[in-house]
């Protein structure tokens, strides 16, 4: 894999965007994730990529609670689209209601993660995700 990893994150919260960016910086990874504000933006972004035949992301992380198109609906839309269904989707959320986790996996989520409550935890989370998806496993690039 010569190209830099391509990671899309749908996160409406500016603070969380900042925190994630800080974590990527701190870990000195050679790439930065691309942020969108909500599910609708991510959906449009992916449709444009498909139209132009550009490179699709290797991994998508989405927050559950977002305006316009929420995480649950976005997940279902992604998994129903045959050109996008192969991309692993990680659910990142603050807390989960009972039954939420099971539903997310049933809908095709690759992982369900609650946001860590410390900076160390956040660093650890980003490192684990990076090591797993961009070092260990093989992602489909198209």
């Amino acid at each position: 894999m010569n190209e830099k990893p391509l990671l899309f994150i749908a996160e409406d919260d500016a603070d969380d965007q900042l925190l994630l960016l800080s974590a990527f910086e701190e870990l000195q990874l050679n790439y930065m994730p691309q942020f969108v504000e909500n599910g609708e933006q991510l959906w449009q972004k992916l449709l444009t990529i498909l139209e132009n035949g550009n490179r699709l992301p290797g991994l998508i992380m989405i927050d559950l609670n977002m305006p316009l198109l929420g995480g649950r609906e976005l997940l279902q839309k992604l998994k129903k689209n045959q050109n996008l269904a192969h991309i692993p989707v990680l659910i990142i959320t603050t807390s989960s209601a009972p039954g939420e986790v099971k539903k997310a996996y049933a809908d095709g989520a690759a992982a369900f993660i609650t946001k860590p409550a410390s900076f160390d935890g956040l660093l650890n989370m980003v490192k684990l995700i990076h090591d797993f998806y961009f070092k260990l496993v093989i992602l489909s690039e198209n």
């Binding site: 603070d15 800080s22 603050t94 860590p116 409550a117 410390s118 900076f119």
Partner: peptide
């Protein structure tokens, strides 16, 4: 939990 988590993470940071 949301703002609380951020307070903790930012102070940690």
């Amino acid at each position: 939990q949301e703002p609380l988590r951020k307070i903790r993470t930012f102070s940690d940071m």
